[in-house]
Amino acid sequence: MATHPNAQPNFRNMFWKPFHMCIKAMARTFSRGPFNRWAKANADGYHNKIEPNMLDEKSIARAEGNIMNDVTAHEYTADREGSELFPTIWKPYTIMYPYERLEDLEPWLFEPGQYNGRIGVVWETCTACKLCIRICPNDCLHMSTKLRVDIMDLQDEDSEHGGLGGDLQVGGYAALPLEEVLAAHEVRNPVTAHTAPEPEYRFGEVISLSGKTATVRWNDSNKETIEYSENLLRGDEQIVSGMIDMGRCMFCGLCMEACDSTSFFMTNEYDGLSGYTREDLWFDASRTRVLISEQQEAVDEELALRAKKERAKRAKKAEKKSAKAKKAEA
């Protein structure tokens, strides 16, 4: 066979290199206690070479006081020590997946807001603004919404949930209750009715507000009329159902960045995304659960914001009530 001048057998390759390998392996394995220095010098890789920066006296004492345990900074990759007695003998680099998981060994790689894993949606805080749908490059997100009156706007003033509804907003929707339909629905028996219930409200877009009146462009006739605000309820475009096609999703994370109301997250999970058919990969609300604890900060902020708004509303209503009561008295 042809040979190459660089590749002739030589004493360095045939003897010295194997010799050094044996010596270093022995030094790594059998150096404990006072011979730790050799262990460190001959250790493979970036383990057992770096002293950790202990932050306080107690930790420093704990590290130094323990001669049996070789405390080094295992920062950079999975801890592959084979055993405590011979820490320099390593397990294979391969992470044995179902039994060992990389997110347990290197958690900084799987930070919840940083890793593009399975999609998780907090449906309660979703405001149906459709920003995520518009930014998805692959048309994976689908949402059906319905224009309706929020249940908080239908509560009595004096009940425990009273006064928590919203006000009319320019650019938002207004709903005019249709009295005959509402009266008919009081006595309607949904079990035996033959036809679907008729819409109870007439919806329109609020063009402008001034004092006690609102200019509304009605959806059915496209005409603008002026109504008294106290006759109108607030209407909302609300999310009814959502489906996410994980088969098309390319896990780019743009939807998470687009969501204004901090309801859309990419969790750090990568399991459980498989199925036998393409329809199995359509995720609905139950399969897009978020482990709230990981996105806790973001969700907490959003909920705190909304609680503040509600408290402000309640305070205003309470003021109005007391002002009325004072007037009535006076």
């Binding site: 518009r134 048309d139 689908h142 059906s144 159902s241 489906m243 058919t277 329809e279 359509w282």
Partner: peptide, 20 residues
């Protein structure tokens, strides 16, 4: 099909699909 952000699907939420 997705030109101008029109829907790519005929039945996006799968209301018309049948069980396996």
């Amino acid at each position: 099909r997705y030109d101008g952000f029109n829907e790519m699907y005929d039945d996006a939420q799968g209301f018309g699909r049948k069980p396996i």
